[in-house]
């Protein structure tokens, strides 16, 4: 526990844990290919790796290998930004937006008057 307090520098344990999860989210969305993957999953939920690769190639001109896209999906899943589920014998991917909420809460949108947006 002591180590936790040292690392978090005064943050409570709960907030320190939330902060660590956020580091992954920032890293996950820092990459343009991973942002394109999220864009496509927002457009249609429940895609296979094959469909995602086709969309990235044909709509975004991203010619990453299937292995590279699979690694991007691993990073996004580790950050909690996608969920996977098997449908029959295929593995499908969904966008999961809840980790982004912590970013909006950390830097709430301010109006010109300095109050938070209604």
């Amino acid at each position: 526990m002591q180590a936790h307090y040292c690392i978090s520098g005064g943050l409570t344990c709960k907030r320190a844990l939330a902060y660590n999860a956020l580091v992954d989210v920032y890293r996950a969305i820092a990459d343009p290919t991973r942002r394109a993957i999220l864009d496509e999953l927002v457009e249609r939920s429940g895609q296979t790796l094959f469909e995602l690769c086709a969309r990235l190639t044909m709509k975004h001109g991203i010619n990453s290998s299937r292995q590279a896209v699979a690694q991007h999906l691993d990073v996004l899943e580790a950050a909690g930004l996608i969920r996977t589920r098997r449908a029959g014998r295929s593995k499908l991917h969904w966008f999961e937006g809840s980790p982004l909420k912590a970013i909006a809460e950390r830097w709430p949108y301010l109006t010109d008057e300095g109050g938070t947006e209604k």
């Binding site: 249609r44 296979t48 094959f50 086709a54 044909m58 709509k59 029959g88 295929s90």
Partner: peptide, 25 residues
């Protein structure tokens, strides 16, 4: 027939993917 990918517009082509019930997509 069960589709794993409904008709999808990919620019020059429109594709869809279904299960042939004998092992293949």
């Amino acid at each position: 027939v069960r589709f794993v990918q409904p008709p999808t517009d990919l620019g020059p082509v429109i594709t869809a993917v279904f299960d042939d019930t004998c092992g293949n997509l």
